[in-house]
Computed example of a mutant assay.
Amino acid sequence: MATKSALTQQLGVVVGFDDPRADLEQYRTPPDLAAHLVHTADLQGDVEGKTVVDLGCGTGMLALGAALRGPEAVVGIDIDPAPLATARENERRIGTASVVSWVRGDATAAPFWPGTETTVIMNPPFGAQQGNEHADRAFLATAADIADVSYSIHNADSADFVEAFAEDNGGEVTHAFRAEFDLPKAFDFHTDDRRNIDVEVFRIDW
């Protein structure tokens, strides 16, 4: 198994959004955070030989990280076709041996059921935009429907919500860790050139 630092370096070539949409909270997942999540999932036996589904995959950071760790299959799903085109370009940059299927679809509507052991990985919208509160709830609902295990990134101090949602839907949070999300300025309403925000990553056994 390659090291987490090696995975971070490999993911450094993954580019972000050309024209990000605020309503979809489109931000590039930092390579070090993506590598941490994927490496942790791999250590738990949740990547190699499994079907890995990235819900709201954007330009493919998490999906491509998983693809470098020997999964049976990887599927990236996003409702916006523009980042999916970038994700395909990123796949060529990475040069992974695993084939990734990029699917345009609504990640909150369970567009398919893989039918095999499935791990969901995702960086869902945090619900920071007005009218988009609790957007991550719908992504967790899809994970509950299609996954055996999921890993998801949420705002800091989301433990009570995530644990309660998991319990209400037949799941259990087995692991959690805090991390930082490096957020460069992407929209006009951002006042800082970049910010570090605190996040939490949760592993849920469904």
Rank of each mutant, 00 (worst) to 15 (best):
G127K: 05
Q10M: 12
A6P: 04
D148I: 08
C57K: 04
F181I: 05
L64W: 01
D198P: 06
Y27Q: 03
D106S: 07
T59G: 06
V99Y: 08
G170N: 10
A138H: 10
T29S: 07
D198T: 11
V162R: 07
V47H: 06
V52I: 13
P124G: 01
H36A: 14
V14C: 04
S101A: 13
A135Y: 01
A73V: 04
L37S: 03
H134I: 06
L84G: 03
A159S: 14
A159E: 13
R69I: 03
V52P: 00
A176T: 15
N196S: 13
C57N: 07
E89V: 03
D192A: 14
A128W: 10
A2C: 13
P184E: 04
A144P: 04
S101E: 15
T8K: 06
I79R: 06
A73R: 13
N155G: 14
D78P: 03
K50E: 14
A97Q: 13
L140G: 09
R178G: 15
I204Y: 01
G45I: 11
H39L: 07
D136V: 01
F202I: 09
D46Y: 10
L68S: 07
I204N: 03
P20M: 00
G60D: 02
G171F: 01
E72Q: 13
R203A: 12
T142N: 00
A107H: 00
D78H: 05
L33K: 02
A34W: 00
T191Q: 13
A22N: 05
V52H: 06
F202R: 04
I146Y: 03
I197Q: 08
A41E: 09
E167K: 15
R203W: 08
R203Q: 15
I79F: 02
V38R: 01
M61H: 06
T142E: 00
A73G: 04
T51G: 09
S150V: 07
Q129N: 09
A34Q: 05
E117W: 10
P81A: 09
A110R: 04
M61W: 07
I77G: 00
V75G: 00
D160S: 15
A147R: 08
E91K: 01
S5E: 15
D54F: 05
Q9C: 08
E200N: 11
L24I: 03
L24Y: 07
A107V: 00
G16A: 06
V201M: 06
K185M: 05
G45E: 12
G58N: 07
H39D: 14
E25N: 07
E91P: 05
E172D: 12
V15W: 00
A159M: 10
E200D: 11
A143S: 15
A97L: 11
L43R: 15
E200I: 08
V52F: 06
T116G: 07
I94D: 02
V162F: 09
N169G: 11
R203K: 15
I146R: 00
Y151C: 04
R137Q: 09
T29F: 02
R203G: 08
H39K: 10
V100S: 03
F112N: 07
